[in-house]
Write a protein that binds this DNA or RNA. Structure first.
Lengths: 335, 335
DNA sequence: TTGTAAGCGTTATCAC
DNA sequence: GTGATAACGCTTACAA
């Protein structure tokens, strides 16, 4: 049988209330009482029962994190940031990996609606905006990474994807490229859409006409990137560079080039987004846009915790800087 | 104010008991009653309160996973397996990342002793055996990956590290190497120790004397591998191949070779362990021992859940097969 | 087949 | 400074 607060109280010859006060560092208890109680707690190795406490206090000191795929280093870095901040504030973190499946995402959310978490962070969520608003209306604190919703209970953290994409494409242009392919991600993803916008803006800024036929969808993953690039190559179009909306898809392009004897960056320059863990190990190493993933995680978690603690006036929106990482894949004569 | 079971009961004109029965799929309730209740639940979007339920049932349907570093793909793959199994059984997963810090690991464990989880899985735990046994004695179900403890409440899943290491080293020997460096991990890690044993066995099986000066410690990480190999190179010893106790450390060796113009695998063959995500993207691609990480995750989670549900006769120990993945880094004239 | 009432282990409120 | 008591929202004997 587990030890409970009354057991401690009896042995320490005080009331459960007093034990509770000691546990919660209530300064009102007399130091001697306090010490006596602590000693008993120590001896019995008593640990308060979370469920009882949660029930009484109507909070759980737990954050739920819903993430598309924990294996993708972009997500993992964010989770690590969240985890670090949460831990520092004595919060626990429940991780839910949706495998990029909207139904699984919904299912997890349903699971978490049982008030086993005080707040939720959605990373690269596929959920329709209305459903996220619903969560917030239900009183759950919601943190969002990679998209933006303006609502009282929704805290947003993201980077300026338009600018990031523009930087990447302008870098390619500065290397002399004018016929630049854009490999896009999910059609409905805000990130993907913004990167397309940046791509178009960069072209515009240099008076290069936008050619829709140079845009292909690769669904943000390696196979998708491979297939997209293959389709593109089959079209017989002329191009000398690729801007891939993330590094994963760039891996697919590397694979295709490898198989077909296309030399990188000699015959084809390429740049990605995310600064995935593998990118710097590739040959040639992949130029990319580094997102401050870890910091984004820290920041959402920080905001969310403040919000859950009833703090007012937390900025609903934070936009962090991402920056260009130039490696070998986008630079001529780099070796 | 949140909706609770009595609210549903009142509107559905039944007792809370009946609502509870419906929620828990008790077949005793009359179909019509059931449907009526379900309709109200739906309308009110009622979700049972986890803490209340947990308190009453003395369980939480949650598994705690303590992991050394969620960014290491070895760990992530395991976590993914755990997560998948847990989800399929309606369990939640709390992830705790210790950053390879024993004190943080202890702290997390203390956090989880509040009965907010029904069981714990330790991946690459640094905890002294006695402390793990303590957990088990306290009634917590414990799953262990990467080490082995024989105790009633402890479920072990690991691979045969001795054999894996032996396979790797014999592969190098088969390629003509006789002077083979061993890069070890943490001195106190079972995995590391077993791999050393396999290394020695392989040498013995081919009548190659074991030379302790060819063993260096790299602490299982990239920088450690770099430094260890640097120290070794400074010793002026002759060797033609490296067996690295994991892929991470091999990355450090690649880096060193890159900087010092040592060609792989021409001048130096190398093989690692883990089949890290980056390994196949390296140039030359890294030969390695693939561990069934995902399956190990699935399996511990499965065992743990059975154990938590009071199932008897679950095997305390499962040893999965790992296998050699030969790529370019260990094979002469491979390109 | 359904309902009543007790109890899970805390903490908040109100007395003392 | 300390203690008695009710309440958090659910499930489970037991009764009907």
């Amino acid at each position: 049988m587990d030890i409970k607060i009354v057991d401690v109280a009896k042995i320490a010859k005080v009331s459960p209330t007093t034990v509770s006060r000691v546990l919660n560092n209530n300064p009102i208890v007399k130091p001697e009482t306090r010490d006596a109680v602590l000693k008993v707690i120590e001896e019995l190795r008593y640990v308060p029962h979370a469920a009882a406490k949660n029930l009484r206090q109507q909070k759980t000191m737990t954050i739920g994190v819903i993430v598309s795929d924990i294996k993708v280093s972009y997500n993992t870095d964010i989770v690590k940031g969240i985890q670090t901040k949460a831990y520092a504030q004595k919060y626990k973190v429940v991780i839910c990996d949706t495998q990029n499946d909207l139904d699984i995402e919904r299912e997890y959310l349903r699971l978490l609606m049982d008030r086993s978490v005080d707040g939720v962070i959605l990373v690269a969520s596929l959920l329709p905006e209305q459903e996220i608003v619903d969560l917030a209306e239900r009183g759950l604190a919601v943190g969002l990474i990679g998209r933006r919703i303006d609502h009282d209970n929704v805290l947003n953290v993201h980077t300026d994807n338009v600018k990031a994409a523009k930087d990447a494409v302008e870098h390619l242009i500065s290397q002399g490229h004018r016929d630049i392919v854009f490999l896009s991600g999910y059609a409905n993803a805000k990130d993907s859409y913004d990167r397309l916008e940046g791509y178009i803006k960069a072209l515009g800024a240099h008076s290069i006409p936008f050619r829709p036929e140079l845009v292909e969808n690769g669904n943000f993953n390696e196979t998708g990137g491979y297939e997209a690039f293959k389709r593109l190559s089959g079209k017989g179009l002329a191009f000398t560079a690729v801007f891939s909306a993330n590094d994963e898809m760039a891996l697919g392009v590397y694979e295709y080039c490898n198989q077909n004897g296309i030399s990188l960056p000699g015959e084809l320059a390429i740049i990605g987004v995310d600064n995935d863990r593998v990118s710097k190990y590739l040959t040639p190493s992949l130029s990319t846009i580094d997102q401050p993933k870890y910091d984004m995680g820290l920041l959402v978690a920080d905001k969310l915790i403040r919000c859950m603690n009833g703090e007012m006036g937390i900025p609903r929106l934070s936009v962090l800087e991402s920056h260009l990482v130039i490696r070998q894949s986008s630079v001529m004569y780099s070796r």
